[in-house]
Design a protein around this nucleic acid. Structure first.
Lengths: 209, 209
DNA sequence: GCATAACTTGAGGGCGTCCTCATGTTGTGC
DNA sequence: GCACAACATGAGGACGCCCTCAAGTTATGC
């Protein structure tokens, strides 16, 4: 349990540059973007990248931590909203906005790679808040009773997919998709659902594709 | 305009095997599956594959033609249904079923690669029928007025994405997603939509990802 | 059966990406 | 300013995939 030796100044600078390049590249190309491109954009040799971040996961964790925190913050704000429906809707809209703007975050959201405590705890916190937001909306009678938090995950994956396909051509098209979904989530619209909701276990094991 | 010389018998057999392997592999791995895997599964050298199908597109066209026809058939049946809503819903459900079962068809649907007349005309026919199905449901008053055929494309992409992520773990999860969407498409549920629908032009230029 | 065109084969060059490591460079503490 | 640990570098091996082509094999028509 010895103290971590501080980085040398040039190393700090290069780390900064790498993170900035990683954020940008992951945002545009997703989490499986070539690492060599990130190094090039950072103006640094590929070896330096591997020096600082031995695995892709390490770089992802360091680069996307802030985004995960931002997502948790969105959930917190939504949970505190005066109107339960407005809170519920703004949660979905806020997260989908992140998903639409950042391919990297969308990948993270889908595959939950996060190994670092920072990301894990942020995602955990968001998950808890999501459950609370759903519960509050249900008891207020503004959300249909038969939807579960796990459904929201599926729906957000769907919105992320349309956002992905239309990003370059109509960056707001996903809002239409989401609006239709929201209308389907209101109690007035409810017709019986044909399949059981996903369990947490199922959700954990899905989507490495 | 000379007649095409018939293939040699062994060539015919290899072609058959290649198509069968391609259907299977595309179904499981999507349209960018390694061609070498298809050749291997067909029990044929890679050169033979390139001999018969010079480009990936050629192979896709030949392998997925039947599926495109099947999709058009689904649309035809849906257009002929007695109940306009049932027809509309069965169109979405039928196409989504294809998308969920076959990653290759989902890719085709997203990227519209088809160069062969067979696929092109099938997709074309489906597009026309889709418009008719939407129109009929609207005039019957069972579908909200502000949705356009192009919206259905987006929604289906979304369902395909969730199907993709849950295929191995809960093969019917997408039905829940679709059911929620359908509820959002009913006139009773309608709240104003926040963005204009995609134009055909926009749809054509989207999603090479 | 034979000649020949049709077909098959798989080694191999090209490419992009991953990751390592020997070598060279630079910041830091004394 | 020196010495040394910390760091940076980029060539290069490994891998998987693409696609070609010279050489070998086989079906087909006579």
């Amino acid at each position: 349990m010895n103290t971590v030796r501080p980085l040398r100044q040039d190393a700090v600078r290069n780390r900064e540059r790498l993170l900035s390049a990683a954020r940008e590249t992951f945002r545009r190309r997703g989490l499986d973007a070539p690492l060599e491109e990130i190094a090039r954009q950072a103006g640094v040799a590929i070896g330096t990248l591997y020096n600082r971040f031995p695995t892709r996961g390490d770089l992802i964790d360091a680069a996307l931590g802030p985004l995960a925190r931002q997502a948790a913050q969105i959930a917190e704000q939504a949970a505190r909203a005066d109107d339960p429906w407005a809170g519920f809707a703004s949660f979905l809209e806020g997260v989908c906005e992140l998903l639409a703007e950042d391919r990297g975050y969308a990948d993270l959201h889908r595959t939950r790679i996060g190994g670092t405590p920072e990301i894990d705890s942020a995602l955990q916190r968001m998950s808890v808040l999501k459950t609370a937001i759903v519960a509050r909306a249900k008891t207020a009678g503004v959300l249909r009773e038969d939807v579960e938090p796990s459904d929201l995950v599926l729906l957000m994956w769907g919105v992320a997919a349309t956002a992905d396909s239309t990003r370059d051509i109509a960056p707001d098209a996903w809002r239409r998709h989401l609006a239709l979904l929201l209308d389907g989530l209101r109690p007035a619209a409810a017709h019986p659902l044909p399949a059981p909701p996903l369990t947490f276990r199922q959700l954990r094991n899905s989507a490495p594709g």
